[in-house]
């Protein structure tokens, strides 16, 4: 059980690190998705530890939320690409200060 949690933790860290180091917005989005799914995995692990369906229910919620977030995110990314012709997050960082 702890091993599975550890796996979730590792996934989460991977996502976290790549959000921080990636410069392409799409990859950042994907990394965030990985983090979310890691959280989902952790929920399922927790749910199975306590033999409750709650963990899986939460996972479904996470799934939904991630989906909604991705659809908005993709639309935004399209828009950004349309305007800036790049997906580099540094290039898209016009507001400073």
């Amino acid at each position: 059980m702890e091993a599975a949690l550890l796996l979730a933790g590792v996934l989460f860290m991977l996502g976290l690190i790549s959000v921080l180091i990636r410069r392409n917005i799409i990859f950042m989005l994907i990394s965030v998705e990985i983090m979310l799914n890691a959280a989902g995995l952790a929920f399922i692990v927790a749910g199975s530890k306590w033999v409750q369906p709650d963990g899986q229910v939460m996972f479904i919620f996470i799934l939904t939320m991630a989906a909604a977030e991705v659809s908005v995110g993709l639309a935004l990314i399209l828009q950004i690409y349309h305007q800036l012709k790049t997906l580099d997050s540094d290039a898209a960082n016009l507001m400073k200060g």
Binding site: L5, A8, F12, G15, V32, M35, L36, A38, A39, G40, A42, F43, V45, A46, G47, K49, W50, D54, G55, M58, I62
Partner: peptide, 12 residues
């Protein structure tokens, strides 16, 4: 994601 993972840990 942080919040969810935290919740999962608490739940765990």
């Amino acid at each position: 994601a942080f919040m969810l993972f935290g919740m999962a840990l608490v739940y765990f």
